[in-house]
Amino acid sequence: MASSKRERREFVKGMAFVSPWFIGFLVFTLTPMGLSLYWSFCDYPLTQPPLFRGLENYRVILHETDFWISLKNTIYYACMALPAGMCVSLGLALLLNTKIRGLGIYRTIIFLPSLVPIVASALLWMWIFNAKYGLFNEVLAKLGINGPNWIADVNTAMPSLALMSLWGVGHTVIIYLAGLQDVPTELYEAAEIDGAESFRRMWHVTIPMISPVIFFNLIMAIIGTFQVFAVPYMMTQGGPFHATYFYTMYLYENAFQNCYFGFASALAWIQLLIVVVLTAFAFWTSTRWVHYQGK
């Protein structure tokens, strides 16, 4: 009886500690999500009450060219930024995991850009990409190459943004670094005794051992690339000629420019569905390539 009283008291205490998060989740996440799901089936111009229209919004979305353009652009960006970000951050983490002088300075330098506010980064990169006075074209000109128009050209705008995304890999590098430092040194010693050179050690020891970290970063990157908004919105506003028109921009314009909140809610749910499907696919494949130490 005494024990159950204590358990009850502890349960109440626990609930009291959890309640700020729980209330916040209920009010600011779950309720808006539930409402947006309902509104996605409505015509809802915000200043008038929502009017139930069934699947109308979803039907219209599938016939909208801007939907397909923005989805294609987002996938195109993800196909470039996601593998590039994963490879570059893993590569940097491997370099930072070596024992060299001034390692702390290098780590700081690599992490520092991810602390720069988004607006400042966007402005900085607009100048770096500037076709006339930009750093890239200045360097290319020194090599005798006529640089492209970067973000002002339909063909190079999206690859430019993907290139810029590498600027913020600092956080991912730190996560990789933590994973790398967790790899038992005995495994490397054993591999070395077996005659494995550095590439084979990395391929057969490092990669499998940090595969849960790679998997975590992959999931975060999938979610992140489908949410890209602020940087392209500031740098290109979706242009030139819709070359950098992302799914989130399409959603934002429908909500806040055209006041189609029902339509925008439907877009948000489709976005969530796509991310869930991709994440589920990643989880499904993970059984073949992710190795957990305890198993």
Binding site: N130, A131, K132, Y133, G134, N149, A152, D153, P240
Partner: peptide
């Protein structure tokens, strides 16, 4: 078009 795009960047 490319000349104009480059010019406007300045």
């Amino acid at each position: 078009k490319d000349s104009v795009a480059e010019f406007r960047q300045g």
